[in-house]
Write a protein that binds this DNA or RNA. Sequence first.
RNA 1: CGGGGCGUGGCUCAGCCUGGUAGAGCACCUGGUUCGGGACUAGGGGGUCGGAGGUUCGAAUCCUCUCGCCCCGACCA
Length: 381
Amino acid sequence: MIYTMFAKWVQGYRDLPILMNQWANVMRWEMRTRLFLRTAEFLWQEGHTAHETEAEAEEEALKMLGVYRTFAENFMATPVITGRKTDSERFAGALRTYCIEAMMQDNKALQAGTSHNLGQNFSKVFDLKFQGRDGTVQYAWNTSWGVSTRLVGSLIMTHSDDDGLVLPPRLAPTVAVIVPIFKTDEEKVIVLETADAIYKELKSKGFRVKIDTRDNMSPGAKYFEWELKGVPLRIEIGPKDVANKTVVIVPRIALDSQEAPKPGRKQKLFVNMDDLFDKVEALSVELQAQLLKNAITRREANTIRGVKSYEEMKEIFSKGEGAFVYAGWNGDPAIEAKVKEETKATIRCIPDAEFRSANAPDKCLISGEPAKHEVIWAKAY
RNA sequence: CGGGGCGUGGCUCAGCCUGGUAGAGCACCUGGUUCGGGACUAGGGGGUCGGAGGUUCGAAUCCUCUCGCCCCGACCA
């Protein structure tokens, strides 16, 4: 449909480049579905472009991969590895398929987004031609790229812990929840008045905040409930706080800048009411960064480089879900098939330079032949 | 499509083998005491046991059929 329209719209090089983006619900026949990661119906975003030159298309494909990476890292706090797919994992009609790969907490890999340089494959099928600067008629160069609601799954599986969901502040519908604490009726009046003032102040400054005034629940029960829902910051305010003009802020995850909490405990930060807004803003920024940092640390701790033999790699994948294993590969699809058969691990990508090992292996781990690429092996969702 | 499992108050499940007054925890309602990490206590409401048929004096329980859901495999973003 999109290429049919492209073919009608594009006559000369001045009509290029052209871009169409759409959000659409997609239905797929899936024998086995998995919540968020593989559903029979899902919402996705797909973009398509047509360009005058191959170089321009390549640039676009890489640019969009970068956009996805930025969103994953800066908003979802989910670190990703950018790279290229091998021929066997490449999108059928593409020249090259690029991807962002994330590691979940069970060490399995999840493809979080893709971007394809389609070459002229589609333009030839749909007769998408234009008259070039030199007067000759040429086929356009295409790209396509997409992400889906699978990103929701990756966010959940990257950050959540035994207490429940953990949401990055930049995406959390509620960034902070205020829990008032009181015993007597007199305390209730005072505390609620102050808590409400704080609530209104934060809200008026554009902060996404909620106040939990339910009186049929103990404060502790509320803490657990909001933690379960992944709210990044909790603001506790009780009679003592009102008297001291302070509040207690409890971050959803431990922050490196604060003293480590005792096991089973959470960090409690005593904050002056006067600079509450600045503090809350700073803490949400810090928490956002902490999430990304924790996820990178976890990924690197479960990444294995310098594997000596295929036997060693098989050993790694025989235990639990394994790891990201960096190894040399001779470029032979038969090797991929063999490893998949024997370990269930596949080549997730040929990583970009930034992610390659300092001293990349020069031999294929499986065949012993000279390595064409350093690749990442992992079990995938 | 092949293999396995499950349907019992709102939720999670026990009871079924060996038929005999439908249960527990959570949730809900009322009172009292509580409230800075999931409150306690006393009382209370709520269930055609997925559906149909059969066996039996008697079926949540045994038999037959049927509907729905879940898990595993191949498949796949």
